[in-house]
């Protein structure tokens, strides 16, 4: 499962985007009709398009997660803490595993003790269980990321290759992104006093390696790859499975794709 780094011209449609998106258009229209306060015109604001994923980048990273393969061992969550200098206490996590237990009476129980790192205790009253499964969660590296939209200073951003990152030297620590993330993927570092999150192990990608959680997943429930290229595990995953994303109604356009996702997951 290597990250394909060949520069193929043969892209999947996901990598190409219209030059002007709707937000762009609305902004231009607003500017033209109201006239922007003088204060704004003083400010050099680079073109919006630079913030969108895709563009001329070689990669457009994404992740695939097969719910039916996840055994809830928690190795991914542990590896993430090791790899990314995430404090063990308090229990902040970049990635975690949820256990869903849907009972015959319709009740849905969800838990994630310590993010699943220490495993899961046995289910009480196993007999009344209709369905039960594990769901790994992490930052969805949304194409239209609400966290990037709300960051007041540009300390969080989407790279050309689609990863949503935080500039820890520039973050003012307002916490707006923590509020804006629908997935609970962001947390506030109590030591560095900045917002933190999953980076898709960007430092590993830069060295041609897959994210730590993918590296250690023993059942290949997690796959990593490049949405811009056809020949890689993720593209295959997307071809052969029915795919869901989390909270699609919020139109964040996640780049973490789930196969065999249950409707109760949110």
């Amino acid at each position: 499962m290597m990250v394909d780094s060949s520069t193929s011209l043969d892209r999947e449609p996901t990598a190409t985007r219209e030059p002007v998106d709707r937000r762009d258009f609305l902004w231009e229209a607003l500017k033209a009709s109201l006239g922007v306060p003088i204060a704004l015109s003083v400010i050099r604001v680079p073109e919006l398009r630079g913030m969108q994923a895709g563009g001329d980048a070689e990669h457009l990273y994404g992740m695939g997660i097969d719910i039916r393969k996840c055994i809830g061992c928690g190795r991914c969550a542990q590896a993430c803490k090791n790899e990314n200098d995430v404090p063990d206490e308090p229990h902040f996590v970049n990635t975690w595993i949820e256990r869903y237990v849907i009972r015959t009476d319709g009740e849905v129980l969800v838990d994630s003790p310590n993010g699943g790192i220490d495993g899961f205790p046995p289910i009480e009253e196993e007999g009344g269980t209709l369905r039960t499964f594990f769901v790994p969660k992490l930052c969805n590296h949304c194409e239209d990321a609400p966290c990037v939209q709300v960051c007041p200073v540009g300390a969080t951003f989407i790279t050309d290759d689609g990863a949503v990152l935080v500039d820890e030297e520039y973050c003012i620590g307002c916490g707006y992104c923590v509020q804006a993330c629908p997935y609970g993927a962001r947390w506030f570092d109590p030591v560095k006093h900045v917002a933190r999150k999953c980076t898709f192990c960007y430092h590993r990608l830069a060295k041609g390696k897959v994210p730590a959680c993918v590296e250690v997943c023993p059942t290949s429930a997690r796959l990593f790859g490049d949405l811009g290229h056809r020949a890689n595990p993720l593209a295959r995953f997307l071809r052969f499975n029915e795919i869901q994303v989390l909270k699609p109604h919020l139109n964040t356009k996640p780049k973490v794709f789930y196969a065999n996702l249950d409707g109760e997951v949110r």
Partner: peptide
């Protein structure tokens, strides 16, 4: 590269 510090990447 966009509305952020390119050096951060």
């Amino acid at each position: 590269a966009g509305h952020y510090r390119a050096a951060a990447v």
